[in-house]
Each structure stands twice: as structure tokens, then as C-alpha cells.
Simulated assay, not measured.
Amino acid sequence: MSHAIETIDLKKNYGSHAAIRGLSITVEPGTVFGLIGPNGAGKTTTLRMLLDVIRPSSGVARVLGETPQAGGPALRRRIGFVPGELRLEGRIRGRALLRHYAEISGQVAPGAVDDLADRLGVDLNREVRKLSKGNKQKLGLIQAFMHRPELLVLDEPTSGLDPLVQREFLTMVREARANGQTILLSSHVLSEIQQTADQVAVLSDGLIVAEGDVAALRLGRIRRVRASFTGIAAAALRQELDHLPTLRDIDIDVTGTEPVRLTATIDGDIDPLVKLLARHSVLDLAVEEPDLEESVLQLYGSSANGRNGEVRHG
């Protein structure tokens, strides 16, 4: 069985600027592949080349066994796409707009559109121009999923969606994978990648600096910690925390009044910190995930500046 997506030394230049500097990835059929990285890394440029929205400067890309240029409209009907900057306007109502998209994309099963609209919570009878950003995004998701394409290419698909709808979207992705569909997901939301992706590639400055599964890439090991407690002076707390090698960016409130407040970043095992704090009277404790861009920059930012910019894991 051929790869769902394959690129070989794919490059894209804009004048003297190299946006993509030799991208080689493979995405297997029936899997979720996460493409992540900081803003300007080249994620959207990559997706646009795979869809023949823009043409590569050099290299090879194959999508569902065909080159995007040769595949033409027939290939694009086999793909569902949500762009990173979705623009939907006009007096047309949502249902009519989706009917128009169905004429382009191909056969849609009876009831599929209404089922997706109910799951995502969008009124298809409203004019598109009157919809909020989140509801326009829901229309974009419906048009991508409604014809059950072989491949879903999703660029920041949950932008503007509330947490409950984001959760439903993740369920839709899992169902698509279970149906044998392939999903290429570009996202800044680490939890989306952690919960859905089988494989991940990290892009930085147009190069893959790491690839593998989420656990191998250690993307979930960096967290922010906030705590407040009583029963210990700030100076004494600082002395205790300095013995934890995984803790950095330590900031302790030194006003001299209780409660003592701590903020820090932990890179690695959180258990030693929890055990240390448990020796004191903890008033509150919050462990937060930094945004995906920060995680990537902290873990792999230096890799892009190394020899050839490539460090691979997994």
C-alpha cells in the first residue's frame, strides 16, 4: 500500500527567502499525523503545496499516490481541507453554502450535513455574514468532513471554537481514523496533538527538527507551576527548590507576608516538586501546559540552528 502523503526534499523559496528547506515526510494511510512548530516555521506553506495551492520550488510531493499538480480536481475531491485563515462571507445561508461545496467535493450521504451541524452546534439557516468566527469555523469543518474524504488536511482547525466543540472535533478525528481516513493536522494546541496524533513532525525555520510520537518528542514534559502556601519563609523555600534540577525560571513572592506564592517552569518529572510542596501547607496548586509554540522553542529551538538543523527522534 502506498503512502497517503510522501514528500522528498520538498523546497519552497520566495525570492531569496527559503520558506521550506528540504522537507521529507511520509504519512501512512489511516493515521493522524501532527505537523507542529512555531509561527513562520512553514506549516501552512507545506499544506498549500500538498494541495497545489502553491507550487514547490523543487522536490517531490505525492498525495494519495498522485502528484498534486497531475491529480487536479479529481484528486482534490478526495481531500477535505480546512485552511488556517478561513474566510466565509455573503448573504448566502449556511445550508446553501454547504450544498454548493457538496456539488464540488462529491457525493454527501443523506443526513450527514445535519448530523455534523447538530454535533458542532451551528444553525445552518443563518446567513454566513451574520455568523461568529467560531460558527464560520464550524461550517469549514462540516464542508471538510461531510463527504468522508480519504484525506483530511486541517490547518489550525479549532481556531475560534469553545472547549466543548473542540472536544467534539477530537471525537470526529478519532472516528475518521477508525473509518480508515488519513488526517494531516497542523495545530498550536498541544492537547489536540497529544490526544489524536499517531506521529508528529516538528517544523522550525522550514526544516524538520524532530519527528516521532508525542511521548518520544517529550512535548508534554514542560509545564508551568503556580502554588501558594503557608508555613515557610520565601528564602527557605528558595533554598529547597534550588535542589530540584528540573525546576527553572523560579519566581517567589518576597513581600514577606503570607501566603508565599511560587511560579516556576518544570522540565521533566513533576513528582519531586509535588513531594517537596506536600511538606508544607499548600493553599492552591496549578500545573499548566505552556502553549505549543513555547514548548517547541524550548525543546527544539536550538536544533534548528545546529548542523543542517535536523535532530530526529523516535
Rank of each mutant, 00 (worst) to 15 (best):
H3G: 13
H3Q: 09
I8F: 13
I8H: 14
I8M: 15
D9C: 04
L10D: 01
K12Q: 01
H17E: 13
A18S: 13
L23C: 09
T26L: 07
V27Q: 09
E28S: 15
P29Y: 06
T31S: 15
F33L: 03
P38A: 15
N39V: 00
D52R: 03
R55G: 01
R55T: 07
A61M: 12
L64W: 02
L64S: 01
P68H: 00
A70H: 13
G71A: 07
A74P: 13
R76H: 08
G80W: 03
V82C: 08
P83I: 07
G84S: 04
E85C: 06
R87N: 15
I92Y: 04
G94F: 01
Y101S: 07
A102D: 04
E103H: 10
S105N: 14
Q107G: 03
V108Q: 05
P110D: 00
P110W: 02
G111C: 06
V113Q: 02
D114H: 00
A117D: 08
G121M: 03
N125I: 07
N125D: 14
R129F: 11
S132R: 11
K133I: 07
K133G: 03
K133H: 12
K136H: 13
Q137M: 12
L139Y: 03
G140L: 06
G140E: 06
I142Y: 00
Q143E: 08
A144P: 10
E150G: 10
P157K: 02
G160N: 01
G160A: 14
R167E: 14
T171G: 10
M172T: 03
R174C: 10
A176K: 01
N179P: 03
L203N: 09
V209T: 10
G212F: 00
A216Y: 05
L219F: 05
R224K: 15
V225E: 02
A227I: 06
F229A: 11
I232H: 01
R238C: 12
P245I: 13
I250P: 01
D251F: 12
V254Y: 15
E258C: 14
T263D: 10
D267H: 02
D271N: 15
P272E: 05
K275E: 11
L277G: 04
A278W: 02
R279Y: 02
H280A: 14
E289P: 08
P290H: 10
P290Q: 10
D291V: 13
L292W: 05
Q298T: 14
L299A: 10
G301Q: 09
G301F: 00
R307E: 15
G309Q: 14
E310M: 14
E310P: 05
V311C: 09
R312V: 11
